[in-house]
Design a protein around this nucleic acid. Structure first.
Lengths: 200, 200
DNA sequence: TTCAATAACTAGACATCGTCAAGTTTAGCC
DNA sequence: GGCTAAACTTGACGATGTCTAGTTATTGAA
């Protein structure tokens, strides 16, 4: 193990390098640019090297989606931190901003995560990572619910609204509206959740 | 032109046969089962025959998506016809039932239409077909709006809600809940639109 | 009716892709 | 130092999108 990075036969941490390469390929060339061979190329290994870490392309996709869910969760949490936690409606709006921002900044990754591509949910990281985002979405709904059933309804309402809006925005035009315009349009559409309790 | 369908060198209507074959492939094998060569095989022509009708796989996908939007629109209209037009809230619920039903019955087609696959919107049929569904969604929102701006907001709200719910339902588990369960869950989540006017 | 022009399709080829099988190199442990 | 197992390379295979060239059928005009 010399100090200089000699062309060692062993990569060292190929698994995470492939995930990172995959994220980059998605960003640069969209869904179809993510191939095992290209990811191997970016990571600087031979075309068959990924097989030792990912049994198939579906496995690599699943791992990348898992990484995406972590970034996704972080994006929501980042926006949530910017607002006062004492205003639950503002917290929901902030989380949705993080949701939309993530999708605009990582459209192909968002499509991979939610777009119908076959993924392996049993692969532990994917289940765990999407669970984190699920938790965040649940937490922001807690102030609006009195029991498990109303929590479930609120979470589904918020999640459906922001996810539907985001998906349709991405599907409709590839030249997105400016980020701020998208978020403004979403917030204008958003109903006043604080009045929902009395609507039953 | 004999009466019997002799194995003519000319297929006759290959373009629509390829679209139909594509829909079948999607239904049977999901997104990744749709290939130009398989569609050609199902239609009974050589692997390069599709090139005369579709310049690329993306073009075939776009045409199939366009066909999907027509089925999609028909599914909403079919459910709308079953309820009284004098009850606008019930009409919205019916359209959403059609939306969810279509997605459950054609998950891969739904993913192709909305899942981030690159499509050619300029290809006339796709724009026109998705326009029909857009019109239907607009029409059911008319009773809830007073001007163009409120119509836009209502359409975006309804569309985002039902689209988000449907997408998340498809993404979460491949073994769907029973259709009736999914629709019931959606309708329980759905806010009372008739009260929305006064919420501004 | 005949025939030429054009459209529809076939056959073959190429690069790229996922995946498998077999070797080769390295790391870690005794 | 040497052995074992993991990490990686090389080479191959079938499938895929797409291109080129050739073949067949339809059509429209003479």
């Amino acid at each position: 193990m010399t100090a200089s990075t000699k062309p060692s036969h062993h990569h060292g941490n190929l698994r995470s390098a492939l995930i990172e390469a995959g994220v980059q390929l998605l960003r640069e060339g969209g869904l179809e640019a993510l191939t095992l061979r290209k990811a191997a190329g970016v990571a600087g290994v031979s075309h068959a090297a990924p097989a030792h870490h990912f049994a198939s392309l579906t496995n690599l996709r699943s791992a990348i989606a898992a990484a995406g869910f972590e970034i996704f969760d972080a994006s929501m949490k980042c926006e949530i931190k910017k607002v006062s936690p004492s205003n639950p409606s503002e917290v929901v709006r902030a989380a949705c901003r993080g949701y939309i921002l993530f999708a605009i900044e990582n459209p192909a990754l968002f499509s991979l995560m939610f777009g119908g591509t076959e993924l392996i949910r049993e692969e532990p990281p994917l289940g765990a990572s999407s669970g984190h985002a699920y938790e965040t979405l649940t937490n922001i709904c807690l102030p609006f619910s009195t029991d498990a059933k109303s929590l479930e309804k609120m979470r589904m309402l918020v999640w459906s609204l922001v996810h539907g809006f985001t998906s349709l925005m991405l599907a409709q035009q590839k030249n997105f509206p400016l980020v701020d315009d998208a978020i403004q349009q979403f917030e204008e559409m958003l109903p006043d959740f604080s009045k929902f309790q009395s609507m039953e």
